[in-house]
C-alpha cells in the first residue's frame, strides 16, 4: 500500500505508540526471566547438590543421551499432533454448527464453552474417576449401550492411558478453537456466500473455497496458539496418570516439572525449557511464514 511520505513517518510513530504499552508490559514480565533461564541452561545448577557452575552445553548433551527424555519428546509430538488434528476438525465443525441461525443457537453456543470454562483441577479429578473401570462414567456408558460385559482399565494400560489423556485434552480444548473460528466465520461478508450459491457451489465447496480461505489468517494463528498450548500442557497428565503407566504418558512439560520442582535441577530444567522453546519456535515460524503469505 502506498502512502504519502510525510504522512508515513507520522503513521509509523503512531503505530509504535499504539504498540508500546502492550510491548512494555510483555517485555517487563518475560525478558529478564527468559534471559535468566537461558543462562541457567548453560549451568550445572542443582540445588540439592548445592551446585551452580558453568557447564556449557553439557545439559543439552545429557538430554540427547537421555532415553526417557527422548521418549517424552516422541509422546509429546504424538500427543500434540493427534490433539491438534482433532481439535481443528471438530472445532471447525462445531463453529459451523454454532454459526447456523436456528432455534438452538444460543443453547449450543453456551453449552459448547462449558468444558473450557471448567476449572482444570475439577476436570482432572473428574477425569481420573471417569476412566475408572468400576466407578467411571466412560465404561458405565459403554456397558449401558449394549456391551454389558465390558471391562477395561484405561489408565492401567499403555495405549489406554494415552488415548484417555488425549480424549480429555480434546474434550477440554475444542470449544476454545471453535468459538474463535465462529467469530472469524461471522466476519465473512454475506455477499460472498450468495455469489457462490448463484454459481451453484455445493456446501462443501463453499466451505473449502469461500469460508476457510477467508478466515485463513485466524485459522493459522489459532493453530499456532493451540499447538503451543498443547506442547506446554501437562496438568491433565499430572492429575490422571503421573506420566504412567511406565513412562508412556510423560509429556515433556511433565518431565520439565519433575526436573525443576522435584529434583531442583534448574540447569537441566532450563535445558528442557530451551528444547521445548526451540520445538515450538520452529512450529511457530512455519506458521508465521504461512500467515504472512496468506493475504485475503
Amino acid at each position: 500500500m502506498k502512502r504519502k511520505i510525510t504522512l508515513s513517518r507520522r503513521k509509523t510513530i503512531f503505530a509504535w505508540m499504539c504498540v508500546l504499552p502492550v510491548l512494555v508490559i510483555r517485555l517487563w514480565t518475560t525478558a529478564y526471566p527468559v534471559v535468566a533461564m537461558s543462562y541457567y541452561s548453560l549451568l550445572d545448577y542443582d540445588l540439592i547438590r548445592r551446585k551452580k557452575e558453568f557447564a556449557g552445553l553439557q545439559n543439552i548433551r545429557n538430554l540427547a543421551k537421555n532415553k526417557q527424555f527422548l521418549e517424552s519428546l516422541s509422546f509429546t509430538v504424538k500427543f500434540t499432533m493427534i490433539s491438534i488434528c482433532f481439535i481443528i476438525v471438530l472445532g471447525v465443525a462445531l463453529a459451523l454448527l454454532m454459526k447456523q441461525n436456528f432455534g438452538g443457537r444460543k443453547l449450543i453456543r453456551t453449552v459448547a464453552l462449558i468444558p473450557w470454562g471448567l476449572s482444570m483441577i475439577v476436570v482432572s479429578i473428574a477425569a481420573l474417576w471417569a476412566f475408572d473401570d468400576t466407578y467411571g462414567i466412560v465404561n458405565d456408558l459403554i456397558r449401558r449401550i449394549g456391551f454389558e460385559g465390558y471391562h477395561f482399565t484405561w489408565l492401567a494400560d499403555k495405549s489406554g492411558a494415552q488415548v484417555a489423556v488425549i480424549i480429555v485434552n480434546i474434550w477440554k480444548n475444542v470449544s476454545f478453537f471453535a468459538i474463535i473460528m465462529l467469530a472469524a466465520f461471522q466476519g465473512i461478508p454475506g455477499e460472498l456466500f450468495e455469489s457462490a450459491r448463484i454459481d451453484g457451489a455445493s456446501n462443501w465447496k463453499i466451505l473449502f473455497h469461500v469460508s476457510l480461505p477467508y478466515v485463513m489468517r485466524t485459522f493459522i494463528i489459532m493453530i499456532i496458539f493451540v499447538g503451543v498450548s498443547q506442547i506446554n500442557s501437562f496438568e491433565i497428565v499430572y492429575a490422571m496418570t503421573k506420566g504412567g503407566p511406565g513412562t508412556t504418558t510423560s509429556l515433556l512439560a511433565y518431565r520439565l516439572y519433575m526436573e525443576a520442582t522435584k529434583n531442583m535441577n534448574y540447569g537441566m530444567a532450563s535445558a528442557i525449557t530451551m528444547v521445548m522453546f526451540l520445538v515450538t519456535a520452529v512450529y511457530g515460524i512455519i506458521g508465521l511464514r504461512i500467515y504472512r503469505k496468506v493475504d485475503y
Binding site: 506446554n232 525449557t273 521445548m276
Partner: peptide, 8 residues
C-alpha cells in the same frame, strides 16, 4: 508465549 513457565 512459547516458553513454559516452570523455570522462568
Amino acid at each position: 508465549t512459547m516458553i513454559p513457565g516452570t523455570v522462568t
